[in-house]
Design a protein around this nucleic acid. Structure first.
Ligand SMILES: [Mn+2]
Ligand SMILES: [Mn+2]
Ligand SMILES: [Mn+2]
Ligand SMILES: [Mn+2]
Lengths: 256, 256
DNA sequence: AAATATAATTAGCCAAGCCTAAAATTCTAC
DNA sequence: GTAGAATTTTAGGCTTGGCTAATTATATTT
């Protein structure tokens, strides 16, 4: 657990707050089962924990209605996320880790480093603003630039874009993306799309070193990009897309 | 907790094993109250924990008779100590920590780093053999060169020696030692000794940059040295020394 | 609107690590 | 060899963070 002058929290508490932050951001709300799934624990355990977190004023909790981070909870979440991402960046840039190895290590170290150590790592890296997966690093003061990006899944044929961010949790997926050359900063162009959630053919890179690869909708969904000026850009038309995750659970219900 | 293929242990368990290792080494045995004092917890808590550690075959425990590390317990202790010392060395050499700041940080990180990370840090440091306080770093394979050194307290007037190791737990003491120039590698000579556990006057360094300082018996005790060939070295005669720690507790009884 | 499905909570349990107070054991002195 | 001191263990309790099974609340169908 970090020592740093202020109150300290246990590893599990920090992981809950991080998970809730991410869920609030991406789906607008954090339901008990979402948290449980994310942390790979039983829903009943989540109920117990969020009651305690609510007692500590880290979140607002209305039974059966979900939770929301308080100001304090948000601050703790962002501090933990900053630690995680600074650590990942340090491991890659200073110790030669590959981008698929750092997440698990950071997931543990984020609870053990002091604020002073994070600051020293950040300074040694010249105050990085994004981690190796393109995720923004919150500042010491607790602000983040959480721009929301399109995913490759949303690009129309012919559109060009720059990869800005990929999901960092699955090492195998990261290795695969790496092998395709799909890393932040790289330019891609949608060469073709099969209908009905079919595979997307991407032109990766530019000029003579460009390659062409086919990615499935799941991979395309986790590849976040920034659109580039494209000659003859067609009007924005989201691709045909039936309800999410058909084989698994039902959708999560409307946010809020 | 470290992930590394093998079984993993909790932070508290690793700290117990480390403490027991150090106690066995320095006093020959590890008594319940010694462990309690070292870890700053109540003796009753120690009894509970060592019973569990004995169940796990990490140590042999005979009630009222103390404990001894098993082969397995020793291995875990040395692995943790290796982590601690590699981390300390890394923090000093790569991140610019001073030697009084690293112990607390390493005390937490030692339980969170993976074997892979320790190996990478060690490689980046060119496989260091001693930490910033002069303590030997166990190898990956679990061997240590635990030479036993004399302390400055044991030096006779006129003897010359090289500082090889200092106790790393008290930051204030480390800062003071640093301010006197008493760091591993430095040469010292006992210029004078006051009798009855009195202060020791040391000539620190050599040549024109040498300084002279007076240290008390407590500080002298924690300064470990290697004797150097000295002109006219007097026969080995330990200084007059009444029973250890007179004001505190009684001595620990014979080892074994 | 009732039936069903899903989500969430409650009830009761457990292990790890800590605590204090009381009892037991061992050591030390006389 | 016994009294007193010190050490160690036992007894009983607490918090954290998990679990399963059962129940209750909410959503979705029909
Ligand atoms: Mn974590
Ligand atoms: Mn990341
Ligand atoms: Mn420790
Ligand atoms: Mn050290």
């Amino acid at each position: 657990m970090p020592t740093g002058g202020a109150t300290t929290y246990t590893g599990p508490v920090e992981d809950y707050l991080k998970a809730i932050y991410e869920l609030e951001r991406s789906t607008g709300s954090a339901a008990t089962t979402d948290i449980a799934h994310r942390l790979e624990i039983a829903p009943a355990s989540v109920t117990g924990m969020i009651r305690r977190l609510a007692d500590q004023r880290l979140l607002d909790y209305e039974p059966y209605r979900g939770v929301r981070l308080t100001e304090t909870g948000l601050r703790v979440a962002l501090r933990t996320i900053r630690r995680h991402r600074v650590i990942e960046t340090f491991l890659v840039r200073v110790l030669g880790y590959s981008w698929d190895e750092v997440h698990a290590e950071a997931e543990r170290l984020e609870h053990a480093v002091s604020d002073a150590l994070v600051d020293r790592m950040a300074a040694a890296l010249d105050e990085p603003t994004v981690d190796p997966h393109g995720a923004p690093i919150p500042t010491r003061e607790g602000t983040v630039d959480e721009a929301h990006y399109a995913s490759v899944e949303e690009l129309a044929p012919g559109e060009r874009a720059r990869v800005v961010r990929v999901s960092d949790e699955d090492p195998a997926r990261l290795r695969y993306l790496g092998s395709l050359g799909l890393t932040p900063g790289v330019t891609v162009m949608v060469a073709a799309r099969a209908p009905f959630d079919g595979p997307i053919t991407l032109r990766i890179g530019s000029g003579r070193r460009a390659t062409q690869q086919v990615v499935g909708p799941s991979l395309a969904h986790s590849l976040l990009v920034e659109r580039l000026r494209t000659p003859h850009r067609p009007p924005h038309r989201p691709p045909h897309r039936p309800p999410q995750r058909p084989p698994h659970g039902p959708p999560l219900g409307p946010p809020g």
